[in-house]
Amino acid sequence: MLETRATAYDSKIEGNVIFTRFDAALNWVRKNSLWPMPMGLACCAIELMAAAASRFDIARFGAEVMRFSPRQCDVMIVAGTVTYKMALAVKRIYEQMPEPKWVIAMGACASTGGMYRSYAVLQGIDQLLPVDVYISGCPPRPEALLAGLMKLQEKISLEHSFRNQKPELAERLEEALA
């Protein structure tokens, strides 16, 4: 008689072994420990700080580690108005982040320039950097930032991490196993 049993993590059948796809494991690890680079330029930085504080608690998502060194960060949260004067500094910091890296444009100013249609404001940080998630709001509530972070986590979970990171190895493996 066929019985189906859910095999748990440390069940007697398989022991302490899980079989999964490498991509799934890598994406799970990456999305649950997204260390932000807080590019807090203006008022949205206050809401970013609020999201990191105890009431809204970005630490639930593994993202409380707001290291201000770009070398140790995964996601750059551009929170605030990007002036032309600051724009190239933001780009320079983005280029110092190691792969894999993502960008969240938080708030109206980072997404499109916001209410500042003027000579001094860059109309959206996506004119310089590739943005993954846009969060609207002026400023967005901390819950909105957390929702944007969750959307980024969904996006990361759908990535082909192994193939993106090691394309030649993936091809050779495919040829070898074909």
Partner: peptide, 19 residues
Amino acid sequence: PLEGLPSEMPDVAFTKVTP
């Protein structure tokens, strides 16, 4: 003009015309 004029200083800053 309110929307600005384009200018370019490589490695320092740049400006564009705002739509």
